[in-house]
Design a protein around this nucleic acid. Structure first.
Length: 643
RNA sequence: GCCGGAGUAGCUCAGUGGCCAGAGCAGCCGACUUGUAAUCGGCAGGUCAGGGGUUCGACUCCCCUCUCCGGCUCCA
């Protein structure tokens, strides 16, 4: 019987016996056989040792393919579990998938292990790797599986609930075995454990079984695995790069912001340098809003409980709010605001509104306070007190689509000005705990989707991730090292206008309900600043830098210095005319990440010349001062916001 | 909130039950008067996160609390 195998280049190879993926690879070339990791047979990814028994379309994956890397990491997780069970035989094991850059496995140990134990486990893994144990796949019945995993509660649960794709199917499960270790798994795996050469266990953390908070908490071991030593090292270097960008570290070094135990967690103090940066961001945002049809409002930080009862916050969000402020003088409780919307609504309600006024767009840099769980706090990126570039738009249903579309454009252009050009969206739909009519939710979700399509932004649907009062669009940006951050949120709200009985008078002189849009574009100023710091690694674009120009002098140049200062007076300048070595001044200037370092010495005074150092290491030397100022103006130019 | 780790000078970190707790950087004082990535010398700086306990003796061991870090869950 002939077997015809079609390869990706559409060439066909004939064989007269059934053969394994490895045989096929060997038949093509020796190097391919050496590199092959797994194989796709008729669209089905599987092990390299799978027998091909009939005419098939095949594609062999080598260590160069991303798919192989995922297989390697999944196998690494198995080897990790195997090592753990060798060392701690009474451990219960959960699940162990491959993830971005690595893998993990969740365990319930008899006694919780410590970080030091990771080294021991890593050693045991190396032993298993050296033995080049083969992975073999087997299908067994549920019954048999329950027997094999009789003392493994998590595996039992997986077999019984049969929905997680861990090799569990109807009436039967697939397992993988290497030496004495067996796991539920649909595969595929690397041919043998020897394929795992370059790996490292990276951290130990807690994780709830199946990610559910009420389930027991397991210990999760994270690792990373790569096909080459070079790739592993590159990954480790990348991790270090990310550490260097940490906004908490840079914030301290550049004296941008600080905190104090006395303030309580999640509250930050902006130092003068940070305040300059922050003010630049806020001023830019404000002027963009002024020029785009927003009216500014200002509202207090606290409100009576009736307000939060009306808005539904006390029903749906109480645990996210700071506890009530009570006094003996009044029966009323007051609450710190976790959102600005109820206040903006009160401004709206202060007057009878006509359809001619709509849409009304109220903007405020509004500070809010949210009782985030201590474990989630993360510098400026997740703080308890923060300021939103917040606006609430009250519109007729007819104008809703236009408003959403305008908002998307507004936000994208604004983010572009700060250097974020790669933008994607999430469309979040109705969650379980929510208020409002089904029909309204449907319509609102549809408007958002239409706007996204018109703007041609790539987006994905986040099922059930909406706010309790309406669906939303979130915009995510990609930073300089490829990480995604959520910034803009645009939320439609049919509920609050009902809660507060909002009205406007339409053209037929009837009172009708407006629709409300909540939106924050940069999101939280704190968070946005944190992301900017990490994106630019503290080397901000000239217009944002707290100190824009450092002028370093060499020798006696007072008169010429004053002349140069007069030419640059519109910028934030620092003069370093100390009598110390130039090298030290330059070192300091670079350390402080000042975008422009100007050097003038006696020669420059004589020649009306100037030298400029930039943070990227480039420099202009002995150039005419006019030319120098032109370069500086260019480098420090503020972007123009235009829709 | 949960699991694990950590908290020593402004910052980065040494110091594993035994004189009075150290270094580098930063700060202050002085010398040097400087042309491209840190000049030299001196001084000052500490309730070793806070509280309790064990001990003749605790930064060090134990308990509690607080805060920070890595995750999990959460993020209206």
């Amino acid at each position: 019987m002939d077997i015809n195998i079609t390869l990706p280049d559409n060439s066909v190879r004939k064989f007269n016996n059934e053969l394994s993926g490895y045989d096929l690879a060997s038949d093509i070339s020796r190097s391919l056989a050496k590199d092959a990791v797994c194989i796709e047979i008729n669209g089905q990814l599987t092990d390299l040792n799978t027998l091909i028994k009939e005419d098939s379309k095949c594609r062999i994956f080598t260590s160069n393919d991303q798919t192989s890397l995922e297989v390697l990491r999944h196998s690494s997780a198995h080897i990790l579990a195997q090592a753990v069970l060798n060392l701690f035989p009474n451990t219960k094991y959960g699940v162990g998938p491959s993830i971005e850059d690595g893998f993990y496995y969740d365990f319930l140990f008899e006694n919780n292990i410590k970080e030091d134990d990771l080294l021991k486990i890593e050693k045991e893994m190396h032993k298993i790797v050296l033995e080049k144990q083969h992975f073999s796949k087997e299908f067994i019945s549920d019954k048999e599986a329950l027997k094999i995993f009789s003392n493994q509660q998590f595996k039992q649960e997986l077999i019984n609930t049969a929905d997680k794709g861990e090799g569990v199917g109807e009436g039967q499960v697939s397992t993988y075995k290497n030496k004495d270790f067996i796991d539920l798994c649909k595969g595929p795996h690397i041919p043998n454990t020897g394929y795992l050469k370059h790996f490292k266990l990276t951290k130990l953390a807690g994780a709830y079984w199946r990610g559910i908070e009420t389930n027991p908490q397991l210990q999760r071991i994270y690792g990373t695995a790569w096909f080459t030593k070079d790739d592993l090292n590159k990954y480790l270097t990348r991790q270090k790069e990310a550490e260097k960008r940490d906004h908490r570290k840079l914030g301290r070094e550049l004296k941008l912001f600080t905190t104090a135990d006395e303030l309580g967690p999640g509250q930050y103090l902006w130092q003068p340098n940070g305040s300059i940066l922050r003010n630049q961001i806020e001023e830019f945002s404000k002027s963009a809003h002024i020029n785009n049809g927003y009216e500014f409002v200002n509202t207090p930080h606290i409100g009576r409980s009736i307000l939060w009862e009306t808005s539904g916050h006390l029903d749906h969000y109480k645990e996210g709010m700071y506890p009530a402020l009570t006094t003996e003088d009044t029966d009323d409780d007051y609450y710190l605001k976790p959102m600005n919307c109820p206040f903006h609504i009160l401004v709206y309600k202060n007057d009878i509104r006509s359809y001619r006024e709509l849409p009304i767009r109220y903007f405020e840099l509004g500070s809010v306070y949210r009782m985030e769980k201590t474990g989630v706090l993360h510098g400026l990126l997740r703080a308890r007190g923060f300021t939103q570039d917040d606006a609430h738009i009250f519109t007729t249903i007819d104008n809703l689509n236009d408003e959403i579309l305008n908002l998307l454009t507004f936000s994208i252009k604004l983010l572009n000005c700060f250097g974020f050009t790669e933008i994607e969206a999430d469309l979040s739909t109705r969650p379980n705990d929510s208020i409002g009519e089904d029909k309204d939710w449907e319509n609102a979700t549809k408007s958002l989707e239409e706007a996204l399509n018109q703007q041609k932004i790539s987006y994905k649907i986040a099922q059930g991730e909406g706010a309790f009062y309406g669906p939303k669009i979130d915009l995510h940006i990609k930073d300089a090292i490829g990480r995604r951050w959520q910034l803009t949120t645009i939320q439609i709200d049919f509920a609050q206008p009902n809660n507060f009985s909002l009205e406007y008078v339409n053209s037929e002189n009837k009172k009708v309900r407006p629709v409300m849009i909540h939106r924050a574009l940069l999101g939280s100023i704190e968070r946005f600043t944190g992301i900017l710091i990490e994106h630019y690694a503290g080397e901000f674009p000239g217009w944002l830098a707290p100190n824009q120009i450092n002028i370093l002098t060499v020798g006696k140049v007072d008169e010429y210095l004053n002349f140069i200062i007069s030419k640059l007076s519109k910028y934030r300048l620092n003069i370093d005319d100390r009598n110390i070595r130039l090298g030290e001044k330059i070192h300091e200037s670079r350390k402080n990440k000042v975008p422009i370092t100007v050097i003038i010495g006696e020669n420059d005074a004589k020649n009306k010349s100037i030298a400029i150092n930039y943070l990227d290491g480039s420099e202009e030397k002995d150039i005419d001062f006019n030319e120098g100022i032109k370069s500086i103006n260019k480098k420090l130019k503020k972007p123009v916001f235009k829709i």
